[in-house]
Amino acid sequence: MLTGFVALYIFMLAAFTGFEIIGRVPAILHTPLMSGSNFIHGIVVVGALWALLNASSTLQQVVGFVGVLLGAGNAAGGYVVTERMLEMFKPSDKKKG
């Protein structure tokens, strides 16, 4: 069980991490990074899975099913779209190398 302050430390360090990573990125990467971070919060599917597997009433099963469905869509869609955007960076990569 995470106690209050351990949770606060996790939140604080994670917030700084996100801030530092995005810190000085070129403007050309803004949209792919938005898409990439959109993919990363697709991890919510794991939480929805837990909620669905522990559902004990029909209402919880329905809401849990919708949650997993939406979360899975977030993860898969975010991945495909980000990958397609980042593919465009490959040719310029080769030119430089």
Partner: peptide
């Protein structure tokens, strides 16, 4: 009580705000 969601969510929360 899921640290993976906490970390991923908060990283995106702050990175997204800055973005």
């Amino acid at each position: 009580n899921n640290p993976a969601l906490m970390i991923a969510g908060m990283v995106v929360g702050s990175a997204g705000t800055l973005l």
